[in-house]
Simulated scan of single mutants.
Amino acid sequence: MVKNGTILYAQHPTGLIEPGVTVKYVEQEIDLDSAPLNGGVLVKVIAMSSDPYMRYRMREPDNKHAAFSPHLTLGYPVDNFGVGRVVRSEDPNLKVGDFVEGYLTFQEYSIFPGPKEQQHFLKYLVKIDRPPSIPASVYTGTLGLAGKSAFVAFDTWGKPKAKDSKTLFVSGAAGPVGTFVCEYAKVCNPNLQVIASAGSPEKIAILKQVGVDVPFNYKEQDTAAVLREHGPIDIYWDNVCGSTLDAALVNMAPTGLIIACGAIAAANTNGDGCNHFEEIFERSLTVHGFTLGTGESAAAMPRFYEVVTPLILEGKITTREHRYSLKEAGEALLAVHLGKNTGKAVVIVSDDE
């Protein structure tokens, strides 16, 4: 038997996630040689992703709000996108030593697919051929859920529009989705003016590093005034919703495009609504909402690694991380809602690269 550090889902939150209350670190044990796999695999976890959408999963099973994501089950390990190496396998498609990515538990050792309570519709695990120069943890961010979300939506709707556009605005831009969009947009059209917002001097520095033309701190500058000065906006990538979406709506160019990726302003509450919905029809705007792997944008998924891996190796898409230990996973899950992480929030479980 060996120690198997685990993050359990302990209590449904009513507001923000509370480390040590909502989720708890416990030390369990596992027999690496005889733990039942039931046709699956045993994975030594390397890194796990902390993402804002996880808050939507922290709800009662009969609560259908945010049904796009499966609820977490009280008393069971928290699960999310992660990476690791196979140490035992009963799956003919995966062998010992394979580097895999997919839905794993926040544990030192994770059994896939795990108990039926966690075999939800997002469950998957696949082998990845990782170039040695790319750290394993990058597959939780730029080459993981965040990068895939940014790529499939922008490639599907943003790229065609960007060819004839002058200005892109990205909110919540210093996170892994936002920086990806800022950089990939410049790959699609080097002449595109990129406006981007973030909430701290450190994050503004990141925006400058990724080539943003007009970075601004929304806590210190009026968003509507910045957009009015540098707009109109042809494409708005929305990561936050709320008052920022309202400011964007009144500064959109006619026939502009809005890609709705996230609503972090509403993740812990019911949000503050939208006061300028009429601008959508008055300006003949197109709005595309999406979740990863569904709808029209899903067709871009098979090309993700083929397109993005070379861009990372060439330095055209960059990565940055804010690392947490497994014991700090609760802090990592909270940080993405408070803007405390600088770079991708990733939980490093082991150094087995």
Rank of each mutant, 00 (worst) to 15 (best):
L94C: 09
V226Y: 09
A185S: 14
V21Y: 05
P113R: 06
A263P: 07
D31R: 09
L104W: 01
F216M: 12
K148T: 02
G256N: 04
P70Y: 02
A248M: 02
P132F: 05
R320E: 01
N251S: 04
V126E: 09
R323M: 07
Q193V: 15
P13M: 11
T342I: 15
I312L: 12
V21S: 14
V177R: 12
G15A: 13
D79S: 10
S89L: 05
H276Q: 04
I348L: 15
I264Y: 00
L74K: 15
R88G: 08
I195S: 11
P160A: 06
N189C: 11
G158C: 09
H288D: 03
L104V: 03
Q119V: 03
T342Q: 14
V240F: 06
D31Y: 06
Y218R: 14
Y324W: 04
E101Q: 15
L122W: 04
L143M: 05
L145Q: 09
P135K: 03
K3S: 12
A162G: 12
E321S: 02
P92R: 06
V138C: 00
Y56Q: 13
Y53N: 12
Y139D: 02
G211H: 08
L313T: 01
K64F: 06
S50E: 04
A247T: 02
P310C: 03
A247I: 04
A146F: 02
K3D: 13
F81L: 15
A205M: 08
R320V: 01
A345G: 14
F290V: 04
N270Q: 05
T291S: 10
S200G: 15
K166W: 03
F106W: 03
H65G: 13
S350L: 10
Q221H: 14
V26W: 03
R320K: 14
L8H: 04
A66T: 05
M1V: 13
H12R: 15
T223P: 14
K344F: 00
Q11H: 15
R88C: 07
V87A: 07
E279L: 01
V187C: 12
C188K: 07
L313H: 01
E108K: 10
H288A: 01
P52F: 00
D31H: 10
V346K: 10
T291M: 09
A185G: 13
P92G: 07
S137V: 00
T319G: 04
A153T: 15
V126S: 11
I46S: 08
G39D: 06
L72P: 12
L227H: 10
V250F: 00
F121Q: 08
I7F: 05
A345C: 13
Y56H: 14
L16M: 15
C274R: 01
V83H: 01
G97S: 05
N63Q: 09
V226W: 09
G20S: 05
E229R: 14
T179K: 10
L125T: 01
L8A: 04
R283S: 05
S133C: 12
